[in-house]
């Protein structure tokens, strides 16, 4: 092919053609498979050389290899290897941080701030259900983790991040803390849940509270209360009421009395609207 053709290819790929010229070139390509291949190759070279881009090729064309790969990926053997890789990831994470003693104070200090943060963050975006949420939310309802792991560096970090509103980081740290050794502390899910709630990841928040709910912790019924707060905050009245009814059904549940009050308030609210 002539040099001038390559200049056109470059202009085309670089988006330097006038609309009409571009249209002509595309027509030319449509009737010339060799030109088409050449353009594809130059496009791929450009992507290869540019360190920021990656060309997702339409690799479905190469059926046999692709199929073989996918068959292996779906096999039991591959699934087992994958879980081994994940396990190694956990082992690595645990080995990363060793607790130090100074952080005890940071942790204790953070505990004081957590209460303040939760209350203030609830006063944004007020709607009537949000008002209720704020009224019924009490920082005291959040389980204290400090007693359990005051000397744990990861936990302290998590709480500081939580306090600073760095919820994504906090989630990560709480998970790291939770994955450590045999530490079985379902209450961490409460914090992860509230972090997700702050990030507006409602499904994840609910999932996290469900983990607490399904755990054998004596505090598992707290999860129902937290869930009703989530529904309240997202204006999901049906689920809020359902969840509250579950709390009410069992007098042993956490915040049983409050749940009755809140349900009454919700009923009033829906009769206004």
């Amino acid at each position: 092919m002539e040099e001038s053709v390559y200049q056109k290819i470059e202009a085309y790929l670089g988006g330097d053609m006038a609309p009409e010229e571009q249209h002509q070139f595309e027509e030319l390509m449509a009737n010339d498979p060799e030109l088409q291949n050449e353009v594809a190759l130059y496009n791929e070279i450009n992507h290869h050389l540019n360190e920021e881009s990656w060309l997702t090729t339409n690799a479905g064309k190469n059926n046999k290899t692709k199929q073989e790969l996918e068959e292996y990926i779906k096999s039991d053997e591959a699934t087992q290897i994958k879980s081994k890789l994940q396990q190694a990831g956990k082992v690595y994470k645990q080995s990363r941080k060793k607790p130090s003693k100074i952080t005890f104070f940071v942790g204790a200090l953070a505990a004081v701030f957590v209460a303040g943060l939760l209350v203030t963050s609830l006063f944004f975006n007020k709607t009537s259900s949000d008002d209720l949420y704020a009224t019924y939310y009490s920082a005291n309802d959040l389980p204290s983790l400090i007693k359990r792991g005051a000397e744990d560096e990861v936990l302290s970090t998590a709480i500081v991040e939580f306090k600073n509103g760095e919820h994504e980081k906090a989630i990560q740290s709480f998970k790291t803390y939770h994955d450590k050794q045999d530490l079985n502390d379902p209450l961490v899910y409460a914090y992860i849940g509230f972090s997700y709630l702050e990030l507006n990841k409602i499904n994840e928040a609910i999932q996290s509270f469900d983990r607490l709910l399904n755990s054998d912790s004596i505090d598992s019924s707290k999860a129902l209360w937290y869930k009703s707060l989530v529904y309240l905050k997202t204006d999901d009245m049906t689920n809020a009421k359902n969840t509250l009814s579950k709390i009410i059904a069992n007098p042993e549940s956490f915040n049983h009395k409050k749940a009755i009050e809140l349900l009454e308030d919700l009923d009033k609210l829906s009769s206004y609207n």
Partner: peptide
Amino acid sequence: REEEEHSSFILEQERWELFE
């Protein structure tokens, strides 16, 4: 699909290595 994601990348990576 997860397997599609993996297999596509494996082939793209192979191609990348060829170019390198």
